[in-house]
Design a protein around this nucleic acid. Structure first.
Lengths: 191, 191
DNA sequence: GAGTTAAACGGAGACAGTCCCCGGTTATCT
DNA sequence: AGATAACCGGGGACTGTCTCCGTTTAACTC
């Protein structure tokens, strides 16, 4: 899985520089930041950028793998602190928050749960899906989550909640509300 | 509300032509179709396009006003055929279907329910919101919809459902499922 | 530490899209 | 028919994407 051949020193240096300025650029200008500009900031030619990262998606993924792995880890940390149903709810909340706040992450997470998406994204997708599966299955065993739900449906719906909340001014405060509406349903409470 | 001064004959002709080729182009290439190309297809210069429609949003809106008004009308038609709760569900279904299938409409409907969105979009937004309000309030009176929901929240959540369904291959078949999950909630059925 | 070589660099340039400007045209009114 | 204000249209500046290929350089050998 690791690099078959170690990269040449200059290649490695440029790779890291690109990653760093890409992170800055995406944070500053969103996921459509100019690629040539990213190369310029990193002090390399655009050819170098395109050699290391053939597509914008590839660069986006490289920049945000860490964030996605962190989300996977959070799933397990939360699972240790809360009962399954609440743990899932809380994890989905964090996923939505990141989706909205980390500019550029939304497209990536979206692609990760899209059918027939780019093979290069499978790593992220797998990571998210397996984290979701652990929480979903635990909640189902506990009986607080419908048994007929697939983890990927839950992830897609969370993505939808993030999209919905994003439409409201400020976004973030609406996440909890929309997420609980999703959990509880739109019908009147019966208790 | 109407044109204060009637348009000059040539201006009107170009306006209509642009609208027609824009509709074709958006349907064919999605909402990012080339504007210069649209002008070319319509047989006018790009200057003419930009004079009539200063921004892509403006053009998108002009192209889809009809579709949006049709959705508003559908709300009333459905309300006459079904009990309030089901009517809302059915209308949201149609909204989601259009959102996904009519390329270019998604951005517009999204902007229409976004806080602080462009003033030019207010017409569409108002139209959708009032249609939603009628159905939402009827369902609330009937007691099949939570009383603490604002129409705009319902629209945003529907937009979210459309986004979620879009991630699944083919999209459309998932709409009904995701919509009913939203209505019923993710907790196990109690009946 | 000089020589060799394959890997990596980088920026010029082809291409596509957006948007504005302004000389020329034309509908409309009298 | 002539005056005029509105409108047309395409040339061109600008920005962004992505590739190609002559040049540089790290890494390895002796």
């Amino acid at each position: 899985m690791a690099q078959v051949k170690p990269m040449r020193a200059d290649a490695r240096r440029n790779y890291e520089r690109l990653l760093k300025s890409a992170a800055d650029a995406f944070a500053e200008h969103g996921e459509n930041a100019s690629l040539d500009d990213i190369a310029k900031r990193a002090g390399v030619g655009s050819g170098t950028l395109y050699r290391h990262f053939p597509t914008r998606q590839a660069l986006l993924e490289a920049v945000y793998v860490d964030a996605i792995e962190a989300l996977g880890d959070r799933a397990d940390a939360i699972a240790k602190e809360l009962p399954p149903g609440e743990a899932l709810q809380e994890w989905l909340y964090e996923v939505c928050v990141r989706t909205i706040e980390v500019r550029g992450l939304k497209a990536l997470l979206g692609a990760a749960v899209t059918d027939g998406s780019n093979a290069a994204l499978t790593a992220c997708g797998t990571h998210m899906k397996s984290a979701a599966a652990r929480l979903v299955e635990a909640a189902q065993r506990e009986g607080t989550l419908r048994g007929d739900l697939e983890p990927i449906d839950v992830l897609r719906l969370a993505h939808g909640v993030a999209s919905a909340a994003e439409l409201a001014n400020g976004g973030r405060p609406r996440i909890r509300r929309y997420l609980s509406l999703l959990t509880e349903g739109l019908r009147p409470a019966e208790d």
